[in-house]
Computed example of a mutant assay.
Amino acid sequence: MNLHALRLFYVIASTGSVTRASELLNISQPAITAQIKKFEKELSLSLLMPQGRGITLTDAGVKVATLAKRLFAVEQQIEQFALDYGQGSFGHIRMAATYLPAHFLIPAWLAKFKQQYEHVEMTITTTNSSGALNQLLNMDVDMAIYGGLPEEYPDTIQTEELFQDELWFVVAPGHRYANQHVSLNEMMREPFVMREEGSSTRERLFALCRTYNAPAPKIALQFNGLHEAITAVIAGYGANFVSSLVVREYVARGDLSRVYVEGVDLRNIIAICTRKNEPLSTAAINLIELIRNN
């Protein structure tokens, strides 16, 4: 079906005049009339008929005009959607994140993002660093946000460091090491309350002890959740080695206290990973820009 001819017919039907349609479309009346006759022949339908000095719609013409109105309304919706999608107002962002950013950074970022881009859909998967990388490589997600040690990535992955986060030793305020400077060996005499095996921060604590030939930490209590581990330390038992992002507010309120271990200055890298040479949607670009600014 000739959509151009259908559009000509629809303008005639909407204005009720070939002359007015000619003026609006900047097409001569004889050209419009010829195309409408050809269109009627294509459809095997009579769409227009003379009425006095003008024209009117046949019964078939009324029905076709109604259907054309729906069609061109959908066309306008598609054009508007394409415009909005290009500006990032619509779309679907798929993201993988490691525990630290997923729980302590991303919720605030996404809250700000959704205030600006309400109709953008979001899917966030919380996993470990290798899981986030695999999802990115397998094209299951558009980006990955991780917190931990910088890793070696394939050439197809692009990494942008956002900032570095300190790792702190913390104890309850009444602990004898609270706000004190101690050696690593002294710190390792304390029982630790940590997350389960496989936790990146736990692995870094063990690696730190190996590096400085210090005794391995004694994990006296183990929880699957970081909140539970911190709560146990606040209650007065043991020590924790944890991201400052997690405990900064606890320390500021006086619920926890830092222990300054001599010679130890470890940091996490908070970074965004994307696939190289693959364009992101405008919505994803807008989210990354918001993260950079926050």
Results as ranks from 00 to 15, higher is better:
A283K: 14
A60W: 01
H4E: 14
G54P: 10
R292M: 05
G254P: 13
G254R: 06
A220P: 12
I269V: 05
M188G: 08
F206R: 14
L287C: 06
H119T: 09
E249R: 07
L266Y: 00
E152G: 01
V233R: 09
E186Q: 15
Y153H: 08
R20A: 09
L3F: 11
V62K: 04
V62P: 07
R248V: 09
K69T: 13
K69W: 02
K114G: 05
I269K: 11
L167G: 05
S183F: 00
G147E: 00
L3T: 15
V170R: 06
T274H: 06
N224S: 05
L208P: 05
I272V: 09
I234H: 12
H227N: 10
C273A: 11
L162I: 05
L290Y: 12
E289Q: 11
A111Q: 14
L133G: 03
D84C: 06
T159I: 12
I230H: 03
I270G: 01
S281F: 15
T15L: 06
I36L: 15
K38R: 10
T156Y: 09
R204D: 07
A214I: 08
S200H: 06
L83W: 15
S17M: 12
M122N: 12
A172I: 07
T15D: 10
T66S: 06
F206P: 02
Q77F: 02
I234L: 13
K37H: 00
L137H: 15
F90N: 12
T201R: 03
D59M: 05
F90D: 07
Y237W: 13
A108I: 13
P107I: 04
M95P: 04
T123D: 13
N294Y: 10
S46Q: 12
P173C: 03
T274Q: 15
S44W: 05
S200V: 14
M187Y: 00
P150V: 10
H175I: 09
L110N: 04
R248W: 12
N240W: 05
L133A: 01
G131H: 07
V74I: 13
R202E: 04
T231K: 08
T58P: 01
V246G: 02
M143W: 09
I219Q: 00
P50A: 12
K218D: 14
G198Q: 09
T98L: 02
Y153Q: 08
V233F: 14
T211A: 00
N294T: 11
L137R: 11
P173S: 12
